[in-house]
Design a protein around this nucleic acid. Sequence first.
DNA 1: AAAAATAATGCAAACGTTTGCATTTCTTTT
DNA 2: AAAAGAAATGCAAACGTTTGCATTATTTTT
Lengths: 334, 334
Amino acid sequence: MATIKDIAKKVGVNPSTVSRVINGTASISEETTKKIMAAMKELDYHPNILARGLVNGNTFTIGLVIDAGNNAAYANTFFIKSVTAIENVTQRLGYNLLITNHGEREKGNAVKNLVLEHKIDGIILPVSGITDDLIRLLRENQFPFVIMGEPDQSYTGKNWVDMDNEGGGRLAVRHLLECGYRHPALFVESMKNTFEQKRTRGFMKELEKNKIPAAKNDIIEVGDDIALKIKELLNHRSETDSIICTNNIVAYHVLQALKQNKVSIPEEMGIITFDNYPLAEYLDPPLTAVDIDTYLLGEQVANSLFDMIKQKGRKEESAFIETKIIKRKSTEKR
Amino acid sequence: MATIKDIAKKVGVNPSTVSRVINGTASISEETTKKIMAAMKELDYHPNILARGLVNGNTFTIGLVIDAGNNAAYANTFFIKSVTAIENVTQRLGYNLLITNHGEREKGNAVKNLVLEHKIDGIILPVSGITDDLIRLLRENQFPFVIMGEPDQSYTGKNWVDMDNEGGGRLAVRHLLECGYRHPALFVESMKNTFEQKRTRGFMKELEKNKIPAAKNDIIEVGDDIALKIKELLNHRSETDSIICTNNIVAYHVLQALKQNKVSIPEEMGIITFDNYPLAEYLDPPLTAVDIDTYLLGEQVANSLFDMIKQKGRKEESAFIETKIIKRKSTEKR
DNA sequence: AAAAATAATGCAAACGTTTGCATTTCTTTT
DNA sequence: AAAAGAAATGCAAACGTTTGCATTATTTTT
């Protein structure tokens, strides 16, 4: 494989000259430039990234940590689209993307090693993957990193990007009202998930804003028997005319239960779900969804990281990615 | 960041000695070994991979090319599980995984560069991503690579791993027969897909083996109106008592159509689908699926690649990953 | 106790770049 | 035409490792 020296020899010039035309880092006569270019083409020269990295301390690679323990992250289209976006940005800028999960056994050492062994120039972490230890390491080394998802209060940095779950909650309510529904209820899988808490908060705020009295039992945490919960809902609060589900699977079960109770959708009851997972589209009727533009999220995250890489010590600023409605049959009340 | 020289200085020894204890490449007295180890720990030493790679020509990174154009690959759990598997194997062996899509614009240059710029030691390619050009490059450089999916006849190499689609077709039929069904039909999305061709071939072979006369119209290529196709099937060939669908979405529609025709499942009609996509589990009834152990596929691919990396010029051998049945309600005829 | 063999370590070059400084060549100014 | 300035290029060190060869220290053999 041709090296810079081979080119230099062929053209009869010093390796440094070759380096300079490659990097455009000094004025080289047009003539030699041409000759060197030609030689590079002829010998099919490609720079050795390792050598380059060794001297100027960068690898043109960024890391992306994935949370393999978290099955949802995987199953979810969410994740995949984000990765695609990140990869696209990365490639556009001439970088490569290195993927790793944070190695259960070694307690995050996989990530630590990537940083310390100079394999990457920056890293994207899922909020589930941050530990005080890791953060300290990164900060100490002034190592560029961005977090996907909003960390809890204890984290003071602003280098994160999340989707706007609360906004999504509000949007869902607003959409239902616009469609002519008057009294939405909310089905939550588990309040343990912070994203569900946030969606719930948005739900409540938007109800309040529209002066709709929100009763405690308009918010239902799903247990084993969704069918039962539905029945209760139908009996106790007959004014409920629409349901928001914080995830697809819940929505699926709600749909089944409603059908069993012979409730017509979307006429008697509207349904809207979070996460535009393929499932939503194929149900009967197809479900309107609060979509989270995860491609945008990934893009934003990547851009944010590259900003940090290009100019270290830059002011950090967190961001929320807006949600949007994918309108389908399940909320077409008319 | 501490280097080998720092360690050497601290212990009062030559850098080469430090290198040797790190690599266990020569006999070093127990005493100095201990001192060096201690110093390494104290200074939190981590080898600089770039420097190491520069001298001994490897990066401890492998590449994985994904076919981002191919949405299916993404949406599919298929892909994700394989990646997880590959990542796990990779990490276990102390390597890292670099992901790239093969850059539409630059016509595969992304991959070419990875190889030529010494960013990786080996690469995994989707069969959709191979071109004669690329293959030639890899072969010329004796660069280790493995293909995911069976290439067509024109490819003479044996360095590929695929799932056993034909076997899956056979398995589906066999399962139905075991459940007591007598005459399966097959719903195919499009015969353009080679994996569907293979599944179809398996279907036919197994029918033949069981002396079941396979009529042309036992194999239905899905058009716009599955409901209609179903109706036709029910009318024309009343002996059909079970349906195999080569993918989930088709299965979903078949299910809907059958319900509309008030055909009871699994009693009057059994259904079995390919690809254990989450959807299958949540349908009513939950669908029996021919599962493709994509985790295993990924593992196999990765192992195969690492074999090649460790011992270049080793004999290549392609492999099929077996399928298996995930039994659910939709084939419980009794 | 000297010679031979072995174990432990040091020295210096090499991997392929980049880059500060020095030198040469060319162009402009006086 | 000499001096000054700018442009083009060369030299050599540096980045952090590894490794063949040389050297020294230690042990074993005679």
